[in-house]
């Protein structure tokens, strides 16, 4: 009869609102808006092509992807390499699956992984502390509005606190982890959809990051965060499926059927 507001585009708008403090502090502390604009053009160029070729609705989530790639991409990589990486990530990571909401891995994560593996000689960015601080209101807003999973944030926080207390994580890694968590891991379309799955995903992200920090010699914090995001995203379907299997088994034991 009538419709509510929680459509795909509402969620994208709310996520953008959550990212605003982080974006503003990134620009304030020397972020390159021209890179963000270039990435935005490439993302929406592909979205337009898929709109015309496959009648696939474009989404505001493209702005989030552009923002994440612009913030986390290797520095001075050049427009051509950047275009190649973003095109790969957006097309192969999102659009071929049917757009945002049907994708398995965050397109920004795929783009950044492609750029990292394809052009390893370029330096990964380093962030000022206030940019990472802005991740806190982003997560708080996201969880409060229900567009980010609170379990995901809590799972990551608990493991991060434990690892920090043990001295396995240092400040620069935590800064990169906070930013990558907000921009890449907390994407509701690709995050775990079950309660335990979300806790496990958050914990796995920080656990992988800790492992990389201890064992990956010479890797930059952002590089480690991107790699951890990619591996965590790939593990999400397994975590969800395991949670659902346990849930079904519990119900079968209690009720004899599901």
């Amino acid at each position: 009869m009538s419709g509510g507001i929680w459509t795909r585009e509402t969620v994208a708008m709310l996520l953008l609102a959550c990212f605003l403090p982080m974006g503003a502090s990134w620009v304030w502390y020397g972020g390159h808006l021209s890179v963000a604009f270039l990435v935005l053009m490439i993302v929406y160029g592909w979205q337009l092509l898929f709109l015309l070729a496959r009648a696939q609705a474009p989404s505001l989530s493209g702005v989030i992807t552009a923002f994440a790639v612009a913030m986390l991409a290797p520095e001075h990589i050049g427009p051509l390499r950047l275009a190649l990486g973003v095109s790969f990530g957006v097309v192969m990571g999102e659009l071929v699956f049917g757009g945002w909401g049907r994708n398995v891995v965050n397109p920004a994560t795929v783009s950044l992984a492609f750029l990292g593996f394809g052009f390893p000689s370029f330096e990964w960015p380093a962030f000022d502390v206030p940019v990472a601080w802005a991740a806190i209101p982003a997560v708080a807003l996201g969880c409060g509005l229900g567009v980010m999973s609170a379990g995901l944030a809590l799972g990551a926080s608990f493991v991060a606190i434990g690892a920090s207390l043990l001295g396995a994580l240092d400040g620069s890694v935590v800064i990169a982890a906070a930013i990558a968590f907000v921009l890449l891991v907390a994407d509701p379309a690709t995050a775990a959809t079950t309660r335990f799955g979300a806790w496990a995903q958050g914990g796995l992200f920080v656990a992988l990051l800790t492992l990389f920090h201890q064992a990956w010699t010479g890797a930059a914090p952002v590089q480690m965060a991107v790699a951890a995001s990619l591996l965590t995203s790939l593990a999400v379907p397994l975590l969800d499926e395991a949670t659902l299997a346990a849930w079904v088994a519990l119900r079968r034991r209690r009720h004899g059927r599901t």
Binding site: W6, R8, A57
Partner: peptide
């Protein structure tokens, strides 16, 4: 019209509201 009416439904995004 092209932006609003799609042959396939727009996917849902899992949120707390759902």
């Amino acid at each position: 019209d092209a932006l609003v009416h799609m042959p396939r439904p727009v996917p849902i995004i899992p949120t707390a509201a759902l």
